[in-house]
Design a protein around this nucleic acid. Structure first.
Length: 900
RNA sequence: GGGUGAUUAGCUCAGUUGGUUAGAGCGCUACCUUGACAUGGUAGAGGUCAGAGGUUCGACUCCUCUAUCACCCACCA
């Protein structure tokens, strides 16, 4: 028999044997559109959130991709054409930064190289290092269709980007305009609002007085946190209803240092309560001021450049904006303009990537008009066309959609999709697919292409379409036809605006249908102290190391087990002991089953022949076997239900509890006894096959979570070729026959007696090697027969000879006693019994039961309860009371005997 | 300033439409290694379910308020 297992489980061997590379060559994970269109099988599609090419594997990826893999494997085993689309994202700023840094180490700047040569370097870098994250993900055992791997800068995806840009431009949804945008002085590019992180920051609120131009000795005082921008002031604004300043409106103030005369204007925007109620207006450096200035036809002056350094001619030029701030406070003080300085804590926008304070910056940028897109995308979610799990994220989504602002999509970078717009010498804009086409449209070949590239998310929002081969046209290819819309998107709630919402917009706009049906928002992983995982804190375990130490299956199982839907997760790598121990347990339990199989069947061949046609035979089933079949099918039903509710941590709990408690601790123990005691060969063979078939089912339901060990063990169930995979086997379904009301559970009472007897042994310290006696009084004839039929299990599992008597038995002398399911259980303990201990034990139990009885009596005496509660509930409570009274009576009798 | 989530055993968490004497894992205590497994087994200790009201015959579960923590959104300088 070749099928026996090594004594110890070695996850390295198993993971190597059933690696991603192995299955890629077998094509196990590939999906075909023709299987959908021809056969009519309902497909199931998952879209991988493309990791950044610069990325390396984090625990966030592990959780995210494990969940996706679980969904896809479950559906694949459920018979659907399951397609998981992988890919990577070019990640504009991140990648460009990495390559620039590398070049800088060699003393080269990107400007030395020029645009084209620099991009060659980036592509080369991507060739060398860009595949890392996908290789790492493969070690996780994820089952993507790798043939369809897409990079957001691939030709087809780039074509789609150009086409969608052109279409939105022609539809009037993309425009170019001079606006105040968020500027990152480090990356030196515009950012979208979403790329700005608000952080609390301690600053100074500086009160500055401006002399009035025409009133000698009079001043108006303003408060600002950015005194360095005073140099670009174009007005002072006050609230029109503010009596303090009513007389000053229309006057002029002199800007300190700059000496410029600026008007004092009235605008509702000004809050009378804040500061002095007078606000300096600096349109180039504050979006609100920009609006105010626009309303009052004021000029726009700028004193901070794209590198965050001062550009003015008042002696600050070239200074960093924060240094200039310090200096101007001193200068204002020297000139007698400084009134006072207060500590002030407020929220300031930081660049997501570079982590520096963003500069509101006036520049020409491209924008997407979002309102028309948002309207439909909001409706799709409100109508349930897209469902969120957990659903409370709808509130966040709705709020963003209802307050949406235009999306700044141009970036002053080189790495990315270049904006397909050309300018002629008059400055007219020609948006088109190519230079040639633009020339044709413009009627000249003197065109210059826009220097900027598009926001990375401008390609990401097309991901559901581009991964299926869409290039921006109206036509649909086979893949789109078959697999769009996709089914489940698994992603973090942190990119709900960046990505999820925009994909919904793009899907609806370009294809007229939502891009996915369900969105599963993953947990955020934190360390054991609840802090976010970060490189700088050093609290981020390396998943590859964790997999190496504990096993990939162990990591996958553990992380799903501890990650409930919609809750943060506290992770420490030692938690993986849990998953590792479980894997070991599975291995060992399987060994037991196989050892028994070998004993009974001798050769694998004779087992296989019988097993292939096996189904449980009613006439051969023991009570224990009926019980485990009932449990198995109950758990299966709950398992499938949990999947339909996206409760993946539930499925791990279900399997864990069932396997450990029911299958191993109880059922396998009964199996040993049955095989040891049964004479009949047919019964033995039947028992083994049942054990194997249950095990096979367990391996299958566990396979989506622990793909490696289940694959390995499944190949030992029968002799299967290495081309076959459990991933393509049929997921077991729950059979109501075994869970229905008519299937009587005769084994649980036996289990209860066993537990109680073990407890008595433990409490009284009965030595392990001492065979004790056990007497069970069962008044009910039918029940008595059940215990008699199963007495062997009790005897074997407790080390106590069980004697089943009727209800009229006498209490054996010197015995410990207990009541189990209304039946009296005695354990004669001549010489071992401590009367004090027994009395204490019985008294404690008596106390519990009598207070319970009182509680129940009170409940049932309450007319409100008996009248209002459903009859079956009342009936149930009556039965409980009856049983408790019965127990109480017996406990009292036993106690009184002892106390005599 | 708005919004969301959390608060259950020493620790980490389950508890699915209100009816269980409130569960698990880890940790702890006791006992148990001659064939599945000590990465294990058996038994046990340990909780006024954050607090206060309310709805109900009945609340860990529903409502209101409070406290603490976390996160998201927000153009008052």
């Amino acid at each position: 028999m070749s099928a026996n297992l090594d004594k110890t489980y070695n996850h390295h061997d198993v993971e190597r044997r059933w690696s991603s590379a192995h299955w890629e060559s077998e094509g196990i994970y590939e999906a075909e559109s023709r299987n959908v269109t021809d056969g009519g099988k309902k497909p199931y599609t998952v879209l991988m959130p493309p990791p950044n090419v610069t990325g390396s594997l984090t625990l966030g990826h592990v959780l995210n991709h494990t969940l996706q893999d679980i969904f896809i494997r479950y559906q694949r085993m459920s018979g659907r054409e399951a397609l998981w689309l992988p890919g990577t994202d070019h990640a504009g700023i991140a990648t460009q930064t990495v390559v620039e840094k590398k070049l800088r180490a060699q003393g080269i700047s990107r400007y030395d190289l020029g645009r084209k040569e620099f991009l060659d370097h980036v592509w080369q870098w991507r060739e060398e290092y860009g595949g890392l994250i996908l290789r790492q993900l493969r070690t996780l055992g994820i089952s993507c269709d790798w043939r369809r791997n897409l990079f957001t800068m691939d030709q087809s995806a780039s074509k789609a980007v150009r086409h969608t840009f052109i279409r939105l431009y022609r539809d009037g949804l993309i425009y170019r305009g001079k606006r105040i945008i968020n500027w990152c002085p480090v990356s030196q590019t515009a950012l979208s609002d979403e790329e700005v992180i608000m952080k609390s920051r301690k600053d100074k609120l500086v009160y500055v007085r401006y002399p009035l131009a025409n009133r000698e000795g009079e001043y108006i005082t303003i408060a600002t946190v950015r005194p360095e921008t005073i140099l670009a002031d174009v007005a002072i604004a006050v609230n029109p209803d503010d009596p303090r300043y009513a007389g000053l409106i229309g006057e002029y103030a002199v800007v300190p240092v700059a000496g410029r005369h600026v008007p004092i204007i009235a605008d509702d925007y000004v809050d009378r309560q804040f500061g002095t109620g007078a606000l300096k207006i600096t349109p180039a450096h504050d979006p609100n001021d920009f609006d105010v200035a626009a309303r009052h036809n004021l000029p726009v002056l700028s004193v901070v450049g794209r590198d965050g350094k001062m550009t003015d001619e008042f002696g600050y030029a070239g200074m960093d904006r924060f240094d200039a701030r310090e200096k101007i406070i001193t200068d204002l003080d020297n000139r007698g303009n400084l009134v006072r300085v207060e500590d002030y804590e407020h929220n300031v926008g930081y660049s997501e990537r570079a982590d520096v304070v963003v500069e509101p910056y006036l520049s020409e940028q491209w924008f997407v008009r979002m309102e028309p897109l948002a309207e439909k995308a909001l409706q799709a979610v409100n109508d349930g066309g897209v469902r969120f799990h957990p659903s409370h994220w709808i509130n966040t989504y709705r709020h963003w959609m209802e307050n949406i602002r235009d999306w700044c999509i141009s970036r002053q970078l080189w790495w990315g999709h270049r904006i397909p717009a050309w300018y002629d010498q008059e400055g007219n804009i020609w948006v088109s697919e190519s230079y040639e086409e633009a020339c044709h449209l413009a009627g000249t070949d003197k065109l210059v292409q826009d220097e900027d590239v598009l926001d990375t998310w401008f390609s990401s929002w097309l991901w559901p379409l581009t991964t299926l081969g869409w290039e921006g046209g109206q036509e649909a290819n086979d893949d789109l036809q078959a697999f769009y819309p996709t089914d489940t998107l698994v992603t973090g709630p942190d990119i709900i605006f960046f990505w999820v919402a925009r994909m919904i917009m793009a899907g609806l706009y370009f294809r007229g249908d939502v891009p996915f049906r369900d969105v599963y928002f993953t947990s955020i992983i934190r360390d054991m102290k609840g802090r976010k995982l970060s490189k700088s804190l050093g609290n981020s375990p390396d998943p590859l190391k964790v997999m190496e130490t504990y096993g990939t299956d162990a990591l996958r199982f553990t992380i799903v087990y501890i990650a409930p839907l919609g809750q943060d997760v506290l992770f420490g790598e030692e938690k993986c002991e849990f998953g590792r121990n479980f894997a070991t347990k599975i291995w060992n339990a399987t060994r037991l089953v196989f050892i028994q199989r070998e004993k009974v069947f001798g050769s694998m061949k004779s087992f296989e022949d019988a097993y292939r046609i096996f189904s449980p035979d009613q006439t051969l089933l023991s009570d224990a076997q009926r019980w485990i079949l009932g449990r198995y099918h109950t758990v299966l039903a709950a398992y499938h239900k949990a999947f339909s509710q996206f409760r993946l941590n539930d499925i791990t709990r279900l399997i864990y509890d069932f396997f450990r408690s029911d299958y191993c601790d109880w059922y396998l123990e009964t199996l040993k006894i049955e095989l040891a005691c049964k004479e009949d060969e047919q019964e033995k063979r039947h028992a083994v096959m049942l054990a194997v078939s249950l095990l096979e089912g367990i391996l299958q339901v566990l396979h989506p979570v622990m793909p490696f060990i289940t694959e390995e063990l499944w190949h030992h169930i029968l002799e299967r070729s290495e081309h076959e995979s459990i991933a393509r086997s049929d997921m077991p379904r729950s059979d109501e026959h075994w869970t229905g009301e008519s299937v009587q559970d005769r084994f649980s009472p036996v289990m209860n007696v066993i537990s109680e007897a073990r407890s008595l042994r433990a409490v009284f310290g009965v030595p392990n090697d001492m065979k004790a006696g056990l007497v069970l009084g069962v008044p009910d004839k039918e029940k008595r027969d059940v215990f008699s039929a199963n007495s062997q299990y009790v005897t074997e599992m407790t080390g106590c000879m069980l004697e089943v008597a009727d209800g009229s038995l006498e209490r054996p002398p010197h015995s410990a006693s207990s009541v189990v399911d209304g039946n009296e259980l005695f354990m004669p303990l001549e010489g071992l019994i401590s009367f004090d201990k027994e009395i204490a034990r019985l008294e404690k139990e008596l106390g519990n039961v009598s207070s319970y009885v009182k509680k129940m009596e009170k409940k049932l005496a309450n007319k409100g309860f008996t009248d209002n509660a459903p009859p079956d509930v009342v009936e149930g409570e009556r039965a409980k009371l009856q049983e408790a009274r019965n127990n109480l009576e017996k406990l009292q009798t036993n106690l009184s005997v002892l106390c005599e």
